[in-house]
Design a protein around this nucleic acid. Sequence first.
RNA 1: AGCGGCAUCGUCUAGGGGUUAGGAUCACAGAUUCUCAUUCUGUUGACACGGGUUCGAAUCCCGUUGCCGCCGCCA
Length: 476
Amino acid sequence: MGEVRVRIAPSPSGNLHVGTARTALFNYLFAKKTGGKFILRVEDTDKERSSEAYIKNIFDSLKAMGLNWDEGPDVGGPYAPYTQSEKFDVYQKYAKELMDKGFAYECYCTQDELEEEKQTCINEKRPHIYSGRCRDLSEEDKAKFKREGRKPAIRFKMPSKIMKFHDVIKGDLEFDTSLMGDFVIMKSNGTPTYNFAVVIDDMQMAMTHIIRGEDHISNTPKQIAIYEALGAKVPEFAHVGMILAPDRTKLSKRHGATAVSDFIEQGYLPEAFVNFVALLGWTPSDSVEIKKLENIISDFSLESISPSNSVFEFDKLNWMNGQYIRSMDNSELTRRAMKYMEKYDTSEYSQEKLEEIVASVKEPITVLSEITDAVEYYFGEDVTYNVEAQDILNLPEAKEVLTKSIDLVNSFDFSDHDGLVEKLMAFRKSFENVKPKTVMWIIRAALTGRLRGSELSAVFTILGKDRVLHRINKAL
RNA sequence: AGCGGCAUCGUCUAGGGGUUAGGAUCACAGAUUCUCAUUCUGUUGACACGGGUUCGAAUCCCGUUGCCGCCGCCA
């Protein structure tokens, strides 16, 4: 077998979808594993629904996930162009070839006629298949239709037979193509339909394996028929199950995020996202689930992908993202967290201090966007107290604790963190009738306005003596 | 309606004629503790149903059911 060539062929009619992202990932993994090429092709034959903004989103998302392509619209390659709208003439050429060889014919049916035919089938409870009434149109008929101003579409003559093919993931598949009817390959406006354009491109671009969602299984016999009519080599197929929302319907806007960029925007790390998505259908052989892309590559195989659909649940994604956040080094984490701290004046802190802040709040965080709220009390002179904090500060013992804590703070050497912790630990146990935990709560409430957050020692050192005293006095 | 695919804890999955049906996540409990959390330990929880083949079926076969997909001059 020669070099493996696989592709991801998104249609730029929306941002990069989670399902497309996973298909891209599997293609990428397979290419890297086999030393082959991963190609990006833009399927924008439907001009109305395609846009530049979506193309950019798709490219950016793929790059963010680390799925870099060897050939594509931007980087070029030996089979350029990699954008379908730039090669309409090519499809026309092949459509003509198919007509010349008798594999295709012009169809002058109007939308209304087609619709009527379909309704009849439905009423008679027959499968709705195009009748093929234009198969044997005479030249006079054609001329007549043309005079009426009708523009022909081109249909492929679907041979009637039992078509069998092997799918790397699903196994042996069998279809009765007599149930499919002659389908359109060129629309009357001169542009190709999906089923035709993919085949032409995959053939021209010498794809060896077609790895895609199982929503394309039923299209496969049609595509194979075109390959055969063209005398081209049929590639291997591998159909991956669908990704479903928790309610087991198709993942859509109403379930929240569906685009990779939505997830990144919310603060999911692209590397965590890729890792999670890989686990939808693929399992590491050593059962270590947290794995970098390069380690997944060596362990990957197409055959081991699960044939069934999988439900996309946030629980595990959140857990995994938290794992990535906690294991990331602080300077990198801070760099990525900056955009979630834009509402604050971060200039009051040095880079080093900012890293301390981020490090001190990162533990409970599952998505980066939670940083915004988590660091709130590190900015500004005063804090606002939430309900829990108010209750604690209203405790009768609060006044005593806070008053005494002023002496404690005055005794601190803010440059000696260990010493500070030692004094703090002693302080919390120094009350006879106030529990250590409550002592800490009172101070925490005064300094941060809440009962949860960074370790208190970190709050002290980051805030600094002046602001600590200010907040204690304010609380008093 | 027809055609195709799929079916193991709630979810992601391992396994694939004889297993205490394994792991991860979630939930719950305990331990640790500068609050919450993290971390650690433990617990609950599954082979869709009915036939068949077999000494033996969750595993193979058939059927049923359920879910998903396709039946477009969308991709």
